[in-house]
Design a binder for these strands. Structure first.
Lengths: 122, 122
DNA sequence: CGCATAATAAACTCAGTGGTTAATTAACCA
DNA sequence: TGGTTAATTAACCACTGAGTTTATTATGCG
């Protein structure tokens, strides 16, 4: 996983409009105007187009063609990028220090490529 | 979990310098100049101060006082905010549709408050 | 064809972010 | 007290991001 992918992924997730779009897409495919519908009272369609493009470039959704429509689909692999990164830190929110100790033992020897990606050491 | 917390959290994570700082802090406490050390060849100390402040405001680290030093510590609860949000989408990267089906059954009845936070429906 | 709908493109504004340098605060120590 | 180290503040600049309005492309349909 490359640094700039993480940059784009997290930046994409930092906007509430885009998170809402992902939430909408978690209930199934939707084309751009369907994604836009909840927001048209507060922003224009071109603004929506831009948000969609950000999500697409971050790999969080895919967009296809159906006549004049552009059905969008959630892309699990994109979200996994964020999940995998943050998962490295799980031990820091497993509250008890006993459990933290247990965690360290539990995960010993599970080190893999992703551990090197952002310089994190367990 | 409020929307603006998620905004700040993900925005903070979108910068590689800040992620590297978190990685450093995962190996233990460090004061600002220690956090700065790997970056002083490419940016100034005030720039570091700003990054630290972003992490602090996002709740990803805490900063305390020790004479003229400002030891910083990773704050698990902050990272958990991101983890919990993205975890809602786990089913979308569990590749097989059989497993997805299994996942839906497995997590039935586990619905809690956080499910409402960002409008996501399972 | 002519028109309506879906979506994008272009050009622009404005605010916020990430960086700079220079100055300042705060604490320790000889 | 005066000097050194740690860190922050202030003022500034360039760039990007999120939004706008207007214009354009592409498709389906009567």
């Amino acid at each position: 996983m490359t640094e700039s992918t993480l940059n784009q992924t997290f930046a994409a997730l930092a906007d509430p409009t885009r998170r809402a779009m992902l939430a909408r897409l978690s209930r199934g495919e939707a084309n751009v105007s369907e994604l836009a519908q909840p927001f048209l009272h507060s922003m224009s369609l071109p603004a929506i187009t831009k948000h969609v493009k950000v999500l697409e470039r971050a790999g969080l959704i895919t967009k296809s063609k159906d006549a004049q429509w552009r059905p969008c689909k959630l892309r699990g692999a994109g979200l996994r990028v964020a999940a995998d990164w943050v998962e490295q830190y799980r031990m820091f929110w497993e509250e008890s220090f006993d459990r933290l100790d247990a965690y360290l033992k539990e995960t010993a020897g599970k080190k893999s490529t992703k551990d090197k990606a952002d310089g994190l050491t367990k």
